[in-house]
């Protein structure tokens, strides 16, 4: 089990790195866009779409890493008032809800990606990039997010991790 949890963690970190790289790429390309458009007065052809795709990619690929580092904001009012057992139960329940959502998006997203791949879909611009490339980010990211949720639940059940990242004695009012 440790191997599974560790493997998922590493995958999430790897995707997080990819997400940061995409973010950096979009900063660079948007500056290139500004130079081409306003500096050289030339036509900007591919930059808008590229940057939009990187942003989509960064969001979906970054999702698992942000979950790993507890960065998805939530309402922790109820958990704070509960005892440890209640917290574990609630954390499992909320993880199951999130997991269902992520699995649905990953699964249907994969079918949609397949459609784009088989149908050879392209962007409706002069650049006309193949759409399967940005579309793959959604099933990939949401799929890994699902795995990260499973790993988190395993850590929770086996006591490796505390629910909602709260310490047992932590009871703020």
């Amino acid at each position: 089990m440790n191997i599974f949890i560790e493997a998922v963690r590493r995958l999430s970190v790897a995707c997080g790195v990819a997400s940061v790289l995409l973010l950096i790429a979009s900063v660079v390309v948007v500056c290139h866009l500004v130079i081409v458009r306003y500096g050289l007065g030339a036509s900007a052809i591919w930059q808008h779409e590229f940057v939009t795709f990187s942003l989509i990619g960064a969001t979906f690929l970054g999702g698992p890493y942000v979950l790993l580092t507890k960065g998805h904001v939530n309402v922790d009012l109820l958990p704070i008032y509960l005892g440890h057992r209640g917290r574990v139960a609630l954390a499992l329940l909320s993880s199951v809800l999130s997991l269902i959502f992520c699995v649905i998006i990953a699964w249907r997203g994969l079918l949609w990606w397949e459609e784009a791949w088989v149908g050879n879909w392209h962007g409706e611009t002069v650049w006309a990039p193949p759409l399967w490339i940005p579309y793959i980010a959604m099933p990939l990211g949401m799929g890994l997010l699902s795995l990260q949720y499973v790993a988190d639940m395993l850590s929770l059940i086996t006591g490796r991790d505390m629910p909602f990242g709260l310490k047992p004695e932590e009871r703020q009012s």
């Binding site: 998805h72 904001v73 939530n74 309402v75 609630l90 909320s94 809800l97 999130s98 992520c102």
Partner: peptide
């Protein structure tokens, strides 16, 4: 939302 599920996934589910 009150169950502590992240806001994004609460809205989604």
């Amino acid at each position: 939302l009150m169950s502590g599920t992240p806001v994004a996934f609460s809205l989604g589910i």
